[in-house]
């Protein structure tokens, strides 16, 4: 895996942050690869934002390092041209227009003013950007933050909860936009979220943390697991034999159901039909990322009052 020409590899090495006796981030080690979208997942308060802030030189790590192509953020010769970050939706002066906010950033890095207007065009807020930022909706703030992140045409994009406050149309736009940036332009994209479904469709890799610790990392394809079919019939053993004959492996589940290692509903149905067995249920099941996410992070949320994993639609969901 060589470093992509347009991206940069971001390496977290033993990153730790303690606030007094509280360990916010605990020995975090993972690598974010160029040309891919990496989802940085964890419940609220898991330490995502603190980790990202340490990566960007805003918060001093207690120990450990984060490097961007081998360099710490503070040592980058051209910070905005290397990493573009959108950390919070609220970091604009309410009395300054969005466009002026970008002009200030552009002035710092010697980026031409024409680039400011290009980015406003690209993120779809050219008209609003001339108004004072105090009147912006959450969605507009997110788009402005994204425009700011893209200002220097960076090789790495770091986005903290970028879908917060976006309407469904905005979320779809964001997904397409991030795919374009990573796949076509080869940028490294690191997106944090506490909601898996927001990035499960877009991300190539995921890094899951809970209580400041890494709990799982890998490609979405690996973690997603293989597809299975659940079939229920009157005589499970007979059906298992019939499936075996059809070249499908099946394992018994509770209440007489069979779990078949395939995602082809039709083959399972045809095997049952050929064996003359009634089909009471035939459905696809995914040992999916979402159930993995919940099982890994459930009950570990150290922050009282944050949202419950109530919408646990993960395991056993009928597709």
């Amino acid at each position: 895996m060589s470093t992509h020409e347009r991206g940069a590899r971001v390496e977290f090495r033993g990153l730790t942050k303690r606030f007094g006796g509280f360990t916010a981030v605990d020995d975090l080690t993972f690598t974010v690869e160029p040309g891919r979208i990496t989802g940085f997942l964890g419940p609220n308060g898991a330490g995502k934002t603190t980790s990202l802030r340490m990566a960007l030189g805003l918060v001093r790590p207690t120990s450990g390092t984060v490097t961007i192509d081998g360099q710490a953020y503070a040592d980058l010769a051209d910070p905005l041209g290397t990493v573009g970050a959108a950390l919070e939706a609220t970091n604009f002066h309410p009395g300054r227009s969005g466009r002026d906010h970008l002009r200030v950033l552009a002035a710092t890095s010697g980026i031409p003013a024409t680039r400011v207007d290009e980015m406003l065009e690209l993120t779809g807020i050219p008209a609003f950007a001339r108004r004072r930022a105090g009147a912006y909706s959450m969605g507009m703030r997110q788009r402005l933050a994204l425009a700011a992140a893209l200002l220097g045409d960076p090789r790495v994009l770091v986005l903290d909860e970028p879908a917060n406050g976006l309407d469904p149309e905005g979320i779809r736009w964001l997904r397409g936009f991030l795919s374009m940036l990573s796949r076509e332009q080869g940028k490294t994209v690191l997106v944090s979220s506490h909601l898996l479904q927001e990035i499960a469709q877009t991300a190539d890799d995921v890094v899951i943390i809970a209580n400041g610790r890494l709990v799982r990392q890998g490609s979405v394809a690996d973690l997603d697991g293989d597809a299975h079919v659940v079939v229920r019939t009157s005589e499970p053993t007979a059906l298992a034999a019939a499936l075996e004959q059809a070249g499908l492996s099946a394992v018994p589940e509770e209440e007489g159901a069979l779990l078949v290692h395939t995602d082809d509903l039709r083959r399972v149905g045809e095997a049952a039909h050929a064996a003359g067995l009634p089909v009471w249920e035939l459905s696809r099941r995914r040992a999916d990322l979402e159930s993995l996410f919940f099982s890994l992070t459930e009950g570990t949320n150290r922050n009282l009052g944050s949202e419950q994993p109530g919408a646990a639609s993960g395991a056993g969901e009928v597709a």
């Binding site: 030189g57 953020y73 503070a74 980058l76 970091n91 950033l105 710092t108």
Partner: peptide
């Protein structure tokens, strides 16, 4: 935040 991102020194 944006000020120190644009100029980390």
């Amino acid at each position: 935040t944006s000020t120190f991102l644009a100029q980390p020194r």
